[in-house]
Design a protein around this nucleic acid. Structure first.
Length: 552
DNA sequence: TTTGGCGTTAAAGCA
DNA sequence: TGCTTTCCACGCCAAA
């Protein structure tokens, strides 16, 4: 229950804020600050804001339900304005265009048009064109799934399937819920139309695709041409950009081979897109970086819709899930809640369902078509769930990681109970920030702040090995998450002291490579390996920069 | 047992 | 170049 003291404290905060708002002190202070600020010397490519973002004038309010606040659902509890506290600050009608100070606090429980969400300086016209496929007719898109927050695991799976030539079919599942390893047949798929399923139907053909897609023929993607093991990766100056202003929590490549586009979500609620092909130095109005602000709190995950790459789902600590629909130029509101959403994922080949975690240990299955929750568990973990991922071998098997110090494997088919049992639980001594399946689905990698990266393998994931790795961060940088490369051989994870990326061999159980470059000025906390282009790796930092390594 | 304060220390912004 | 500010990740520990 909220204490008397807490109520008084909140009441004081509210009164003070109303007084400041009435005096318009903050707006005036902001004007003074803007008038006296120096232009920043920024030699690297960067997003351009409409106006300098002043520091937040209100505290970030973490979304918390009555339940997690310890209040009864029918309790009067905190005043109504508390959950939407920032909205109480008087805002002018043009808040989105000329008053980022006010804008920074408003949680809009409605679809948000691009015009209102856009926070860049130039035009986003080219971005829309690119996303709608007018320049992407050569694009090739993946055939199946995307993944969970801030990682790279399942978006790579297609590429891995191609490179490993692992034939995917309806896998037999053991009684324990795990796929029988021996059921898989390795053979070359060169020349096959890998985007078609067993019935000959292309999973890409459904839906109102915006991009002009082309069936991927394996011979078009010569994975052997680029051998990550042998060819070093390099960081070119033009592959460095500041995409968003705040600390990045999630970075994702658009799963498209011929359009080099990176999306990043930051602590302030921004979602930035960087079209790396758009490098027209003469065009001051469009440098390929497009900054939107669909959320008012940290963006926890970004997922490109599996069969419609012009749609991007975002989740946030502000309790909202939005669907960016480029065709309609709007960030639709999919879900809203008082609980912070810490992770979101989709199962392979099921783009109608969202799996997301909220508050402290809750997990929801949301039907996009029906617009409602079809399943939920209140206490899947004892603390926040940091990642959700699905086995590419068997999409019924889900992996979660949590601040409660565990990573768990679940069988979705036997989770009807209110307190479902795990298939496997991995115990770390501290918070676990990720648990991602390898591209083949045969291994799982967990990353914990206890300074270990766990590798689970074996037919039933019974073989657990812990690789020592310095995963310590602090409050100013995002926690590390080990992500898989393009096959089961390597895991990529940030290195704080060296400001680089460690490449860990799962076979040797140690770091075998380090990606360093003098251009790297900050720690790459969140990493994504391009799902279709082997050797292309993005690292993102607390300063909002994205660094993209490419094969030499 | 719960709660809240504190230490940690990266990186932008500013003078 | 150096100082200030940021401020909800996490663990530790003392106080309630």
């Amino acid at each position: 229950m909220a204490t008397e003291y807490e109520r008084k404290r909140l009441e004081n905060i509210r009164r003070n804020d109303e007084m400041l708002a009435a005096l318009n002190v903050r707006a005036k202070a902001s004007i003074l600050t803007a008038a006296t600020k120096r232009p920043r010397d920024d030699s690297t490519k960067s997003y351009k804001k409409k106006e300098k973002q002043s520091k937040p004038e209100t505290p970030i309010v973490m979304r918390k339900s009555l339940r997690t606040r310890g209040l009864d659902p029918d309790s009067v509890g905190l005043p109504n304005w508390f959950s939407d506290y920032p909205k109480r600050i008087p805002t002018p009608p043009q808040q989105y265009s000329s008053a980022p100070l006010q804008k920074s606090s408003a949680r809009v429980l409605a679809p948000l048009p691009f015009d209102k969400a856009y926070d860049g300086e130039g035009s986003y016209k080219k971005f829309v064109e690119t996303m709608l496929g007018t320049t992407a007719s050569k694009s090739m898109v993946k055939d199946d799934c995307d993944d969970s927050v801030g990682d790279s695991s399942s978006t790579r799976r297609r590429s891995s399937r191609l490179s490993n030539a692992v034939v995917q079919k309806e896998e037999p599942v053991s009684s324990s819920g795990f796929v029988k390893k021996e059921a898989f047949v390795k053979k070359s798929c060169r020349g096959k139309l890998v985007t078609k399923d067993e019935n000959g139907d292309s999973p890409m053909s459904s839906g109102n695709d915006c991009l002009k897609k082309e069936v991927i023929k394996p011979e078009k993607i010569d994975f052997e041409k680029i051998e990550f093991d042998r060819e070093p990766l390099s960081l070119e100056p033009h592959n460095v950009a500041r995409v968003v202003p705040g600390r990045i929590l999630v970075v994702k490549f658009m799963p498209c081979q011929n359009v080099k586009l990176v999306a990043a979500g930051d602590k302030l609620g921004n979602v930035g897109f960087w079209n790396m092909d758009c490098g027209d130095e003469d065009d001051d109005d469009d440098d390929g970086i497009y900054l939107f602000r669909p959320h008012t709190a940290p963006v926890s995950s970004l997922v490109f819709q599996q069969n419609s790459l012009s749609k991007v789902i975002s989740s946030s600590y502000d309790g909202l899930i939005r669907l960016m629909d480029v065709e309609k130029s709007v960030f639709d509101l999919v879900y809203s809640s008082d609980d912070a959403i810490f992770s979101l994922s989709q199962r392979p080949n099921d783009e109608q369902s969202l799996y997301f975690s909220a508050g402290y240990g809750m997990l929801y299955v949301w039907d996009l078509r029906a617009g409602k929750s079809v399943l939920n568990w209140d206490d899947l973990h004892e603390h926040r769930i940091n990642s959700i991922d699905f086995s590419p071998q068997n999409p019924h098997v889900m992996a979660t990681s949590s601040t409660d110090g565990t990573a768990c494997l679940w069988d979705l088919r036997s989770m009807g109970a209110t307190t479902p049992k795990t298939l496997k639980t991995v115990n770390h001594s501290r918070a676990v920030h990720s648990a991602y399946f390898s591209p083949s689905g045969l291994s799982l990698a967990t990353t914990s702040v206890d300074n270990y990266i766990g590798i689970l393998s074996g037919a039933n994931f019974e073989d657990i090995s812990m690789i020592s790795h310095d995963n310590a961060t602090n409050r100013w940088i995002s926690t590390f998450r080990g992500v898989w490369g393009w096959d089961d051989s390597y895991i990529f994870v940030g290195n704080r002291p060296s400001k680089g990326i460690d490449v860990i061999s799962t076979k040797l159980k140690r770091t075998v490579k380090e990606l360093h470059d003098p251009l790297m000025k900050a720690i790459p906390c969140r990493i994504h390996c391009h799902p279709l282009n082997v050797g292309v790796v993005a690292g993102s930092t607390a300063g909002g920069q994205v660094y993209v390594w490419t094969p030499k």
